[in-house]
């Protein structure tokens, strides 16, 4: 198709050398191509502001995965997140997640002993983080499809509501984002949530590992 159009345009140019020269003498910056040309310079006569372009810097998403709460069991976790992409390198993210801790080994070995009430086992985390797209790239599926991807590092702070108290929490991790199309993202996240827990007598720093898979949409 393109070659046919090219041929048509070239033929037209060959047939009209005089007209072409005349046009060159006139307006230097305007090429007078016909409507069927590949290069059609006749664009709408209006002022364009960058603000008119649809910006899609926000990414909203939901995720589900597994949370291994230190000293407790590994339990399902679900969460929501909202991200803002500042530039190609850096993005900010806020997230809220929930899970519920199971029994500690001690509780399992000593039937009837309950260290925490049912309410205290509820895990709620509210966190903010800064992400850095360390290794952006493309992934290929077969010979006809390419997806934009990024391996990112992410870290931040937040509050975790667990074991009857609110705990200041640091989080640190890495993830992989694959853009399925122009707006849909698939994400795999590994995150360590670090907070102090005093439930077992001393104030211990605990590492709580999360592995999750999520979907996001840019808007």
């Amino acid at each position: 198709m393109e070659t046919r159009i090219c041929r048509a345009v070239l033929t037209a140019l060959l047939l009209l050398p005089v007209a072409g020269q005349a046009a060159d003498d006139g307006a230097v910056n305007v090429r007078d191509a016909d409507a069927g040309s590949v290069l059609d310079p006749r664009i709408e006569r209006r002022r364009i502001h960058e603000a008119d372009i649809d910006t899609e810097n926000f990414e909203v998403g939901a995720y589900a995965g597994v949370l291994a709460i230190d000293n407790f069991s590994s339990e399902p976790l679900v969460g929501l997140r909202l991200g803002y992409h500042i530039n190609e390198d850096v993005f900010l993210e806020a997230q809220a997640s929930m899970s519920k801790a199971g029994d500690t080994s001690f509780e399992k070995l000593n039937a009837g002993v309950q260290l925490l009430t049912d309410d205290q086992r509820e895990y709620r985390a509210y966190e903010a983080a800064v992400g850095y797209n360390l290794l952006p790239g493309e992934a290929f599926f077969g010979d006809g499809r390419a997806f934009n991807t990024s391996l990112y590092l992410i870290g931040g702070a937040g509050v975790t509501d667990f074991a009857g108290d609110q705990r200041f929490t640091l989080n640190l991790g890495a993830g992989y984002r694959v853009l399925m199309n122009d707006w849909l993202s698939l994400r795999l996240d590994m995150r360590d949530h670090i907070f102090d827990l005093d439930t077992f007598g001393s104030n211990d720093t605990t590492h709580n590992l999360e592995l999750s898979l999520g979907l996001g949409a840019f808007f």
Binding site: N29, I48, D54, E56, N57, H85, E88, A146
Partner: peptide, 29 residues
């Protein structure tokens, strides 16, 4: 091919040719 400085250049648009602006994300159009 993608919104980042490392993505390869796969096409070139010459002077006077029109570009249709679809969306802007993180400093790329």
């Amino acid at each position: 091919t993608g919104p980042g400085r490392g993505y390869p250049v796969f096409h070139v648009v010459e002077r006077h040719a029109p570009l249709t602006l679809i969306r802007e994300r993180a400093g790329w159009v």
